[in-house]
Design a protein around this nucleic acid. Structure first.
Lengths: 105, 105
DNA sequence: GATACATATATCGTATCACGACATATGTCG
DNA sequence: CGACATATGTCGTGATACGATATATGTATC
């Protein structure tokens, strides 16, 4: 198991939102905003940069949008590898908090 | 209270180590390695880049090394502002983990 | 049908910055 | 001396995360 490198806060929330079920970019932005009570905002630049990046990494895959309406709507869903990346990141955050408790008593 | 921006893992551990008491660069590197069981390694490039940066931010201050021996030894200690930055970061990590629980049930 | 707003996706530039690689100097132990 | 730990420093760079900006469609109101 190779050492998992940290990911940005935005990436974390994108993966987390997708862990709740398939979603599209704009939906993820809104969900993150709501989930964090406005503390975290993902801009579209970040969003669509990240999706490309994550597809390359194999963390998410794009599914065909079947519904009528806006044809441009692109649905993303988490892959197994993406779920692992999220787990690893959560474990990392957990380790950091445990270390913090350890040091600060 | 302005929105606290995320900090890197290395920065987090540097502040955390200093929260345990004043220390010098090399000591922080070793302490981090030990604290994380080798999971996190801070290279000297990161270390001394970070100290300069943190001094500018007012998170740490450099204290005069009084002891004999290696004169080059520079002791760093956390400022009040640095402690606040650490607290904010811990709160941020905490929020992320809580959000993760929230979503994943 | 016009105005306004929400939905939805996309690109582009750039500042930043975090880190690896490398260099240097002293202390110490055999 | 030779090897290693201690301790600090710098230099380049490649990734990248984000803000600003643009575009197009859906929907509600009048």
């Amino acid at each position: 198991m190779k050492k998992s490198e940290p990911m940005s806060e935005s990436y974390f929330y994108i993966l987390l939102c997708l862990a709740a079920g398939p979603n599209h970019g704009y939906g993820i932005m809104q969900m993150t905003e709501k989930l964090t009570g406005g503390e975290v905002t993902i801009g579209s630049g970040t969003m669509y940069g990240a999706t490309g990046n994550m597809i390359k990494k194999g963390w998410i895959r794009e599914t065909i949008s079947t519904g009528s309406g806006l044809e441009r709507k692109r649905l993303y869903q988490l892959t197994e590898s993406g779920r692992e990346a999220l787990e690893a990141e959560i474990a990392r955050l957990d380790r950091m908090l445990k270390n913090a408790e350890e040091v600060r008593g």
